[in-house]
Simulated scan of single mutants.
Amino acid sequence: MTLILEDICVRRRDEIWLDDIDLELSDGMTTLIGPMGAGKTTLMRVAAGLVSPTGGRVIVNGKDVTSISARKRSVAFVYQQFINYPSLSVYENIASPLRQARTRTKGEIDRRVREVAELMGIGDLLGRRPAELSGGQQQRTAIARALARPADVLLLDEPLANLDYKLRERLRADLKDLFRDSPGVVLYSTADPAEALTFAAPTVVLSQGRIERVGDVADMYRHPPTLHVAATLSDPPLNLLPGVVREGRIECLGAWLPAPRAQVSGRQVVLAVRPHQVSIAAGGPGALEFPAEIRLAEVTGGVTFLHLLVAGERHLVAQLPGTRRFEPGEPALAYVDPAHVFVFDESGGRLLAESAPEVDLHG
């Protein structure tokens, strides 16, 4: 199976929703990631036939389906909201696309409904109505309905976004197993970096209606080619600090680190550091040291986010393991290993050192 989006543009009034989208997807799962407003939903709706592009073509298995309505395409769509028929039981919700197709006997429909329900862990809920289900059970029902009738293209638009953290974790694992060897094209959109990294599928990074990068998500996390890619795949958000090149080194708020390759003195750069790479313990040889003032200690589960003020004007967040107590106004020293600093130019392009550091995906 193949899904090709060729030179897709969507313009509404004076706004550009999608621009110059060229994407080819084949069997298996692909993750689409970007912040709110990046164009993920619009792209998926174009693929489904729910939005007509201003320009370009949608091609499924070699056939141009751009002008074909969504009803006549072999596409299944799962939305962020729990969309189920409220008056129907779980069984009837899952069976509804099979009945509409009118290609299966009653016995075949029954077998398929029970098979998909068991797969999604709702086999014992078939007699209930949506109002009698939890949020997670409702979304499992919606996904089961989408899976019931095999489709060339399955689109999932942030299907776990409205669920609580623990349930999202559990369903991520289930969906990863489900779609690992799935026949047909599966396109899964998310704004959550943890979700994209968990699925470990080929990933499309979207920014302001344009494709920023396509590739291996772990590789993009370790070696982000642009500041936007680094920011998109970082949660909590990156620490961004100003720097300037001076005679082969970069000065950043009183600290110094080697400049990537040959850089012109006086050049302005942006330093990006993930919060879990900031420490308040003594740093190793060559570590950047930032005198700071503690502004807030935010405890979340087994992690403490320490908000620091550096040089009286710049905010720096350190993600520390465990539950820690700090007093606002306390002085502190923040340390960062230069190997964990990404350097970008003013346009957001990555400046590479002679040997780019290998960044631990989980460390």
Rank of each mutant, 00 (worst) to 15 (best):
L125D: 04
G123F: 07
E108L: 06
L32M: 12
L133F: 04
A76C: 06
A48V: 06
S96A: 15
P86I: 15
G34I: 03
Q81E: 14
F82S: 15
L25P: 01
L32S: 13
S89C: 10
L43V: 04
V153S: 02
W17M: 07
V78M: 04
E24D: 13
D152P: 00
I143W: 01
R140V: 03
A70V: 12
Y91L: 14
G39M: 12
D64Q: 09
D124E: 15
D22Y: 07
V60S: 05
P86A: 15
I94P: 02
T41Q: 01
S26Y: 04
A144E: 02
S134Q: 14
G135P: 08
S69P: 03
R111H: 14
P35F: 09
G28L: 05
D20Q: 08
S96W: 07
K106R: 15
G34Y: 09
M120I: 08
Q139H: 08
R73F: 01
D124P: 03
G123C: 11
D20R: 09
G37K: 08
I33N: 11
Q139W: 01
R128W: 09
R57M: 08
S67G: 13
Q137K: 06
A144D: 00
R73I: 02
I94Y: 00
T54F: 06
T105G: 13
L23I: 02
M29K: 07
S89N: 09
G123Y: 10
G49D: 05
E15P: 04
Y79P: 10
V116A: 08
R111M: 05
N93E: 06
L25C: 13
I59A: 10
P150R: 14
P130R: 10
P97H: 14
D152E: 13
M36K: 15
V46G: 00
L32E: 10
L50A: 04
E15A: 14
R149M: 13
K106A: 14
